[in-house]
């Protein structure tokens, strides 16, 4: 039986910039930073209230990880905003939206009422998009 997810990967264009974005803008915490090559790290972060999920900020590099063609293709797709990697949950979307905007996060959708809650969408510094959602309280 699968119990839970422990690691998920996000392809990033620049690990240093992604680290700054996820930690200083989104407020995530660093879990691991291990050098695995020239200017390349095994770099994982977690939302503060979910330390058991490590999100790997995976560099797209020619060489060991990808061949040159594949790396170029993935980089282009990421930059073009092809990949949406998930939904981040928040307690109060208006406050969270306001805070992230203040910190310079680029939103592609303002908080909007949906049938499941209130949702906004933002992009990370590489171009990956995410949903930011305040889910409806379950009816009692």
């Amino acid at each position: 039986m699968i119990r839970k997810m422990s690691h998920a990967s996000i392809y990033v264009i620049d690990q240093h910039s992604a680290e700054e974005f996820y930690i200083n803008k989104l407020g995530f915490e660093q879990r691991m930073k291990i050098p695995i090559g020239k200017n390349t790290f095994w770099l994982t972060v977690s939302p503060k209230e979910q330390p058991e999920l490590e999100i790997t900020l995976m560099p797209i590099q020619n060489g060991e990880m990808f061949d040159s063609n594949t790396a170029d293709q993935i980089s282009t797709l990421v930059k073009n905003g092809t990949f949406g990697f998930g939904v981040f949950e928040c307690k109060n979307i208006y406050a969270t939206y306001q805070e992230l905007k203040e910190k310079g996060v680029e939103f592609t959708k303002e908080p909007t009422e949906e049938f499941y809650g209130i949702e906004a969408m933002f992009k990370d510094d590489s171009g990956n998009w995410f949903s930011l959602t305040q889910f409806k309280e379950p009816e009692k």
Binding site: I34, P35, K38, W42
Partner: peptide, 26 residues
């Protein structure tokens, strides 16, 4: 420990798929 045995802290599937052991990883 991370410094001495870094591979213990990276899931093996990533090490194999990304051929980290063949990289210049110290």
């Amino acid at each position: 420990m991370v410094e001495k045995k870094p591979f213990q802290f990276i899931p093996n599937c990533f090490i194999q798929n990304h051929r980290l052991k063949n990289s210049n990883f110290q």
